[in-house]
């Protein structure tokens, strides 16, 4: 079926000149530490903890409802140290996921209700299935699907992932329209 249009209330969203759409009902801490590169959608209930460490988010990145972004920590010389969280372009994170990864590449799809633990690295063009729990320090290579509790390698993604995922996120952004 044709992808449906999503309408939002214009009063509930803030729009920046680079095209970011940020919901006023989201919880953003340490906004000076959060860099949105443009055309991102931040839905209601999203929590971004920029007060812990810088969070860098690429273009066309979509966070659906109740997503939590928390930078991960490292233990160095007996102290906890929070490290920068980098999220690439065309990343789609579905409802209710908790993301503590240190690095997320381009064209990554994270399913619903996932938990991505501390210091995980998600490479380009990978997919995490709904309800997966990635144990700490897991590395997800590109063009793979991880799923299960704890998440393990399941299968390979098709070669068209780059095109399909870019189309998915760009399409979602273009269909995300204000109510007239």
């Amino acid at each position: 079926m044709e992808p449906v249009k999503v309408f939002y209330n214009k009063k509930e969203y803030l729009e920046t000149h680079t095209g970011n759409k940020v919901c006023r009902k989201s919880l953003i801490r340490g906004s000076h530490n959060i860099h949105l590169n443009g055309k991102c959608i931040i839905s209601p209930g999203v929590v971004i903890r920029g007060d812990l460490a810088p969070v860098k988010i690429g273009k066309y990145t979509i966070f659906k409802e109740d997503v939590v972004l928390r930078p991960s920590y490292k233990r160095a010389k007996g102290k906890l140290k929070y490290i920068t969280m980098q999220i690439g372009e065309h990343v789609l994170i579905e409802e209710g996921s908790i993301v503590c990864a240190s690095k997320i590449g381009n064209n990554v799809h994270v399913g619903k209700n996932c938990i991505i633990s501390h210091r995980c690295v998600l490479r380009d063009n990978c997919k995490i299935e709904d309800g997966a729990i990635l144990s700490p320090d897991t590395e997800v290579p590109s063009f793979t699907i991880y799923g299960g509790k704890p998440a393990t390698y399941l299968a390979d993604m098709p070669d068209s992932t780059v095109f399909m995922h870019t189309e998915l996120t760009q399409g979602y952004y273009n269909r995300f329209l204000p109510l007239a």
Binding site: M1, E2, P3, D124, N125, S142, F143, D159, S160, V162, F163, M164
Partner: peptide, 19 residues
Amino acid sequence: NPFKMENLLVYFFPRIYIR
């Protein structure tokens, strides 16, 4: 770019949706 060469059908055949 992860490919040197990628001749995938998505680049050359129209996408068809049911409206």
